[in-house]
Design a protein around this nucleic acid. Structure first.
Lengths: 213, 213
DNA sequence: TATAAATATGCAGACGATGCATTAATTCGC
DNA sequence: GCGAATTAATGCATCGTCTGCATATTTATA
């Protein structure tokens, strides 16, 4: 803790990080090869040479190692931007926000893609993934409300404003699902900007809001 | 099978129906009392006096007895109506279609409400529920496409028409989620018509499509 | 009523997950 | 560096869901 200011957080932390990485790698590889259901925790432990108990200490569950441990929360900064953002495309902006948080949660692109692929092809995982997002529902609704307030809308004038916010979040989840699907199926080749643009356009069309031009 | 044309499908079927009803009742009651997680399959079996093996033969899983065995498929007739329906509110109409199918799958209103309440308050179940709906995604997308075609839209003129259809389905799921939530939280007092109307309006607002009047 | 067909049950065991005691490793004060 | 104090990893027992398979029951049928 003297020589190097950041990084090198002690032997303990480094070892743990290494072990985690090794376990994740083993799990992802095995699952991509043989299918999530056909991989047991025991196999993963064997491959990464740790005890089963340690596996659960680290990741909590079999699904945890695939979905990733971080809860994918948007950064303060991003949230502020979303809240104060001008324009009326709440839905599009919210989808962007969540998408950004998701990729931020897994810096390693290769791992991220492995995860997404696996999630996409495994109903079980897909559903867990959605459940996780569901946890954030309340928080996201709050952001949307903040944005509404910033834009001068209030419950006084619009009593069911919160309902509207909830609906925005619900729709965003739906759109996000679509977007992820699309992205995985394009083998991650589409740039994020384009993808989100497409998503926005589709939302407009799907809801009867053709883009003027 | 001679005297009575319908009903009375033989002792066997009747017994099974009775057993199923008894098990469902026991499961729902126990789960509402003590929480889904705190009820074991063993308890349910004890309460309904059948073997664990039989329980799994009937319902396949612990979650199955709560969510219900029927997959909630819209009737042919409803589908046809949806496909040939005039108007541009695909999203609203689709939400209606799915909602109708869901209530049709459980004729007994009391049971239906028990299920919904339990699903609503149990994240685990919520997520399973969504996963089930996810299974129908492909089918629903097809209906939407059929409707588009009926309305004279084609992939020739709109290459990404299928994407648009997918997005409609994805958004419908989101909206449906919202609607169910709302309904459960109103203790099922809101009439379905009103609820769907509200949903439609909120979708319009959420997507920047204020209703003119 | 005897026989065939279907069904419920018991039993063993796989697998995920958790609690608890034990052992091994790391960190920290000297 | 070295030993004590902390902290983390492991082993073990156990619960709960779920499946396969053999066996016992029950219903349907001739």
């Amino acid at each position: 803790m003297s020589k190097v200011v950041e990084a090198e957080q002690g032997l303990r932390a480094r070892k743990r990080a290494a072990a985690e990485a090794s376990i994740e790698q083993a799990a992802l590889t095995l699952a991509l090869e043989r299918g999530y259901e056909n991989v047991t925790v025991e196999m993963i432990c064997e491959a990464s040479m740790i005890s089963q108990r340690t596996f659960f200490n680290y990741f909590g569950s079999k699904e945890g190692v695939i979905l990733g441990t971080r809860p994918a929360t948007p950064a303060e900064e991003e949230i502020r931007r979303f809240v104060t953002q001008e324009g009326s495309d709440v839905l599009g902006d919210l989808v962007s926000l969540i998408a950004a948080a998701m990729s931020a949660a897994e810096p390693d692109m290769a791992l991220f893609q492995s995860r997404r692929t696996l999630i996409q092809r495994t109903p079980e995982l897909m559903m867990r993934e959605k459940a996780r997002l569901g946890d954030a529902e309340g928080r996201l609704t709050k952001y949307v409300m903040d944005r509404f307030h910033t834009q001068g809308r209030s419950e006084t004038k619009t009593p069911d404003l919160e309902d509207e916010a909830r609906m925005v979040v619900a729709l965003a989840f739906g759109a996000l699902h679509y977007t992820m699907h699309k992205w995985v199926n394009s083998s991650f080749s589409v740039k994020r900007g384009e993808l989100l643009e497409t998503t926005s356009n589709l939302i407009r069309r799907a809801t009867g809001n053709e883009k003027p031009a």
